[in-house]
């Protein structure tokens, strides 16, 4: 069962990732990104991270991809890109070579480490493992508001800075006009 779910989710995310890179239309790329994000959310459930799976769907597939699509439509760049011509000579070959080398390196590292243990429900509270439905949320809340409360407060500063910065950037352009 786990094998089946893993295979489906992995195929979903890989097909979506290839779609992001290979699709010529940016809208199609954004929709392929949704496929990848849903696949990753399924993997999160499989790895007993239900809270993160929910956040992944809401924040990534909901907010971020909608923001992408909104900007694509706003700028009107949803036309098909010409991928045939190569702007910089040999760029694709070099990029493909670098990609192959990097993937070979990373996959070889993971395979050499070769961890064949299958762990289920040790230390991580999860509804999948048979704990009560809120266990995972409660555990992560305990972590975030306990050990990492300073980092959590700093993320609020980061978000405020990001929002204010975006507003300032948008306003300056209007004043120049």
């Amino acid at each position: 069962m786990d094998f089946f779910v893993f295979t489906c989710a992995a195929l979903m995310s890989l097909v979506g990732a290839l779609g992001v890179v290979l699709r010529r239309n940016p809208v199609h790329a954004a929709l392929s990104l949704v496929l990848t994000l849903f696949g990753v959310a399924v993997l999160f459930v499989l790895l007993q991270a239900e809270f993160l799976a929910a956040v992944q769907v809401i924040v990534y597939a909901g907010a971020i991809v909608v923001l992408f699509l909104f900007v694509i439509m706003l700028l009107g760049v949803d036309r098909i890109e010409n991928l045939r011509t190569e702007p910089i000579a040999l760029q694709r070959w070099v990029a493909g070579l670098v990609g192959l080398a990097l993937s070979g390196l990373l996959v070889a590292t993971a395979l050499v480490a070769g961890d064949e243990t299958v762990v289920r429900g040790s230390g991580i509270a999860s509804a999948v493992a048979g704990d009560d439905p809120d266990a995972n949320v409660r555990q992560i809340a305990g972590e975030i508001f306990g050990d990492y409360v300073v980092a959590f407060e700093l993320t609020s500063v980061l978000l405020v800075v990001a929002v204010v910065g975006t507003v300032v950037m948008a306003r300056r352009k209007q004043a120049a006009k």
Partner: peptide, 29 residues
């Protein structure tokens, strides 16, 4: 599925993303 499978999948996803950054010219993509 063991931890290795997930790590291999994560590696492949990462490399696809990195190659995309190198290859594509549209800043949104």
């Amino acid at each position: 599925p063991t931890t290795t499978w997930y790590l291999v999948l994560a590696s492949v996803l990462f490399v696809i993303g990195a190659t995309g950054v190198l290859v594509r010219r549209n800043p949104l993509v």
